[in-house]
Design a protein around this nucleic acid. Structure first.
Lengths: 223, 223
DNA sequence: TAGATTGTTAATCGATTAACAATC
DNA sequence: TAGATTGTTAATCGATTAACAATC
């Protein structure tokens, strides 16, 4: 039984972590970074929770999945907790990502500063249109989609963002998997099938507007 | 006790509908539209569920919140169910939306075809930069942010998409609320505060990549 | 010491799944 | 009729909240 006083001690839990917990972790991180920027050194679970609309118990429980980061009577040290959460999420080290597709959305994602701020570097773009191959966009080189295996390997690309039409997204996903990509963020409005060795997150922008429309129409009921 | 044979009968439930149910409704709709496009007339809860990774019971339960849409022994008629789900979500009628901010993301959202496909029309753009005011982008007029109340009223804009930097997003939200907007889709990486009369959906793209990074790092555990 | 706040256990709440009578 | 499939109830599972001893 060790008695070291070094905080924080991070351990990944035995069982699987609920998706909702990981999602809140990202929100905690975002809020903590903001608070840290304002010069606040510590924060209680009650304060962090109320900034985001969660209960204090929820905040403590979520963090407790991964270790003991708090100080009874004090709260959490913001700087320490930011570092801990980034390490839990895996964003304490940079990730190289590729974007597939150079439509409006693809081009917007290339230059999105929010990615770099959180440790994600867009290091290559893949396109089927040979006319665009060889271009540079925001300092990022455009490659033909057939160069994927080589570029993924040489640049150490681990994540890919799919920004192609729904009709071609599954094909693109399969090429990415074949090239050794480990995770896919899919913006095409279609459910992709990938092997269990590859992680998948789906973001459908029109679906988000549908959720909003439903909320507006049923506003009274949701209160 | 009526005995009419007209299907479907839609009723909104008494209690609040869980967010997860509404989210799956959008997925059902997307899949149903695809299936309908392939000419399939009916679908069972088992088939629809397995296409999306849900159980048959889940599909039936979700739909049963809103009425009786299925036919025992047959399944659901795709065309009917599409119409029903669109009516439930509120997208059986068009929604006018505005975009605030003309950075990379804002410009990408203006021309996004996926919105129009699901019944959302981008009818105006708002900008603080006077230099851009008066432009047309993809046939959509750019207005100064101070013209918001007037334009929202005259064009019947009910939804707004915030695509401005985090630092100014809360101010923008307040202007939108003041102008009578009913729902906000926020892409700025900051938690907004809006009155309970206004609906809010938040999409943080960097957060989605964080979720992906976590999934990749913990791939073995999630299986 | 008194006050604040954590980490954790037990209690509560809500959502998913299993099962099956009713229906086509 | 036999087979398929729904809508719904009851059982199970998982996630959130309440409560509190331990700690600073």
């Amino acid at each position: 039984m060790s008695d070291d006083q070094s905080k924080p001690m991070i351990g990944m839990p035995e069982g699987p972590v609920p998706k909702a917990v990981v999602s809140r972790l990202s929100l905690y991180l975002r809020e903590l970074q903001r608070i840290l920027g304002e010069g606040q050194a510590t924060i209680s679970s009650t304060q962090l929770g109320s900034l985001l609309g969660f209960s204090d118990a929820q905040v403590r429980k979520d963090l407790a999945y991964f270790g003991q980061f708090g100080y009874p009577g004090i709260g959490y040290r913001c700087e320490e907790l930011v570092a801990a959460v980034r390490r839990i999420l895996g964003t304490d080290r940079p990730w190289n990502a590729a974007i597939v597709g150079m439509g409006n959305l693809g081009r917007a994602l290339i230059g999105y500063r929010g990615f770099l701020n959180q440790g994600f570097r867009v290091v290559s773009i893949f396109e089927v249109d040979s006319g665009k191959v060889g271009w540079q966009v925001e300092g990022v080189q455009v490659y033909h989609i057939d160069q994927m295996p080589e570029i993924v390997r040489t640049l150490g690309v681990r994540l890919a963002l799919i920004a192609v039409p729904a009709a071609t997204a599954q094909q693109v996903a399969e090429k990415l998997v074949g090239a050794g990509i480990e995770g896919i963020l899919n913006f095409a409005p279609v459910t992709l099938t990938v092997p269990p060795t590859v992680s998948l997150v789906e973001v459908d922008l029109a679906m988000q507007l549908e959720q909003l429309a439903f909320a507006v129409v049923n506003r009274e009921k949701s209160t």
